[in-house]
Simulated scan of single mutants.
Amino acid sequence: MTRRNMLKAGAAAAALPLIGIPRAFAQEKLKVAFVLIGSPDDNGWNFGHEQGRKKMLEAIGADKVDTTVVTNVAEGPDSERVFRELAQQGHKLIYATSFGYGDYVHKVAKQFPDVKFEWATGNATAANVSTYNARFHEGRAVIGTIAGLMTKTNIGAYIGSFPIPEVRMGINAFAIAARKVNPEFKLKVVYVDSWFDPAKEADAARALIDQGVDVITQHTDGPAALQVAEERGIVGGFGQGADMSAFAPNAHLSAIIDNWGPHYIKSVQSVLDGTWVESSVWDGLASGEVEIGPFNKKIPADVVAKAEAVKAGIIDGSIHPFAGPLKDNTGAERVAAGDVIDDGEFWAVDWYVEGVEA
Rank of each mutant, 00 (worst) to 15 (best):
E166S: 13
F162S: 01
A202P: 06
S161Q: 04
I94V: 12
F117M: 02
K152A: 09
M150W: 09
G102F: 00
L149Y: 04
N128M: 11
A124S: 12
I146M: 15
N154W: 04
S98T: 01
N123C: 02
A175M: 12
S194Y: 04
L187A: 06
G170A: 07
G100C: 01
E138K: 02
N182A: 08
T131Q: 13
A124E: 15
W195C: 05
I176Y: 06
V189C: 11
R179T: 15
K107V: 05
W119P: 00
W119M: 01
D103I: 02
T151A: 03
F99C: 01
A96P: 03
I155D: 01
D103G: 02
K116N: 14
S130I: 02
E184G: 12
V190C: 05
F112M: 08
S98W: 00
N154Y: 04
G160Y: 04
A199D: 13
G100R: 00
K110N: 12
L93H: 03
G102L: 00
E201R: 08
G144C: 07
F99S: 01
T153S: 15
D193I: 06
S194F: 07
G100I: 01
T131A: 12
D193Q: 08
R168F: 13
Q111D: 15
Y101S: 00
Y101E: 00
I94L: 07
T121Q: 05
G100D: 00
L149K: 13
I94H: 04
I146Y: 14
A173W: 09
A177N: 06
A177D: 06
N123W: 11
E118P: 00
G144H: 07
G102A: 08
G139K: 09
F196W: 09
I94K: 03
S130G: 12
N133D: 14
D193E: 13
P198T: 05
L149N: 04
Y158M: 11
N123D: 08
T151P: 15
V105M: 03
G122T: 05
F136M: 10
T153Q: 06
A126Y: 12
Y158K: 04
H137K: 07
A199Q: 15
N133R: 09
M169K: 09
